[in-house]
Amino acid sequence: MTMLAGRLDPTAGTFGMRTVPIPEPGPGQVRIRVRAAGVCLSDVHLIDGSLRPAFLDAQEVTLGHEVSGEIDAVGPDVPDQWLPGVRVVLEAGERCGVCPQCTRFRTPCLAVRTRGVDYDGGWAEYALATHHTLVAMPDTLSFEEAAIVPDAVSTPWGAVAGTGRAEPGRPAGVWGVGGLGAHAVQLLRMVGAAPVVAVDPLDAARDRALEFGADFAFDPADPHFGEQVAAVTGGAGLDVAYDMAGVGAVREQAVRCLGRDGRLVLVGLTPEPLTIPNSIAVSIRGTRILGHYGSRAGDVERLIDLIRYGRLDLSRSVSGTLPLSEAPEAVKALADKQGNPIRLILTP
């Protein structure tokens, strides 16, 4: 039995759709019939080589770290709650199980394995998942919306509520209102940050930011940009700024917008060096620069509950769906920002 899958060879730098064997679940694993899988800029960067898997032990990997579907088959040693037909969303990664933190039952894991990067993901008709990475999803939530929770929503949630510690009534800025940034704006408004300032060079992205709950949306190239941020924060500057774009110039600009004890959170991934033009100001203001990756244990479950009870609306987040066979076209559309997408979804 075979299936279609989107396969990347990181060494050769090649990506394409291939027919591969349908996997069989081993101990502690289930096989998922994939119903929806998100296309993320990280996937684009894996294909173009600017990101590389850290722990891949095979020549190729099936991409896709945002996945939802139904349990199709169950391996041995899986808890009874996970039965064929149960609707689930998959965590975007899992603990390595061998680092000192894991062997001592501590968090965080020092070498988290990412689905669709370090092991096979969900750009396929079927995918394997260990049972502790499964999150049950309500019948009221579509597979398309559920699929994006494990990264497009949970990563900014981890940055907003965790790493950046955004607070009610305190000003926050988001640079880059794409798949991550649009949800960061929505989540900042939900936790009460005020004002929420969105920054993006695209008119359509700034309009989207206002629709998602930003109080202000500015063009970073505007010659009066610094004055605009100062005006809306009463001259105090931002309490926290989030780089969702992974661009060096963004980080330099965001640092300059921070107030006393301000925090810059690096969410967008880039191999570019981090440069701070004026480190004296950073020292005097007590600025902190914080790296962020992924989300914390339990975040996906919490977000699913927020959706279940109507606190979080993802109905505007799916920009379009394409058949799994058109994964290369979806990657190109996202890379070229065709239609200014938030998230494109592949459906097997």
Rank of each mutant, 00 (worst) to 15 (best):
I71V: 13
A217I: 05
T2Y: 09
S68F: 08
L51F: 12
G26I: 01
A254D: 04
G262H: 06
V177C: 09
V117L: 05
D239S: 15
G121D: 08
T287I: 15
C40N: 11
R115E: 02
Q29W: 02
S283N: 14
P171M: 09
N278M: 10
T107Q: 14
R256S: 14
V197L: 09
P277W: 11
G213D: 03
Q338E: 13
A297G: 05
V78T: 08
C99D: 02
A236N: 13
G28W: 07
A231L: 11
G339R: 09
E167C: 12
P201F: 00
G262M: 06
P84W: 00
H45N: 08
V331R: 03
A327R: 11
G246W: 03
P23F: 12
I22F: 00
T163D: 02
Y242A: 07
V135Y: 06
V34C: 10
H183D: 01
G179N: 10
A231M: 04
D261S: 14
D72R: 06
V232R: 07
E66R: 10
A147M: 12
Q253Y: 01
D261G: 00
A58I: 00
G268V: 04
R106E: 13
R302N: 14
L210Y: 04
G69T: 03
L312T: 05
V39H: 04
A194I: 00
A297M: 03
L303N: 07
A198D: 01
R35G: 14
E326T: 14
M190Q: 13
P23A: 11
G26C: 06
C102P: 07
R308I: 00
V174G: 03
V177Q: 02
V39K: 09
T155R: 01
V153Q: 02
V98S: 12
R263L: 08
D200G: 09
A254N: 05
V67H: 06
G169A: 12
A12R: 15
P271N: 07
P108K: 14
D43E: 13
V300I: 14
G93F: 06
A217L: 04
L187V: 05
Y242V: 09
E60M: 08
H132F: 12
A241N: 09
C96D: 09
E326H: 13
G178V: 01
G286M: 03
L110P: 00
L322N: 08
D336Y: 01
D48R: 02
G181M: 01
G64C: 10
L187P: 02
V153I: 15
V74T: 08
G181V: 01
A193C: 12
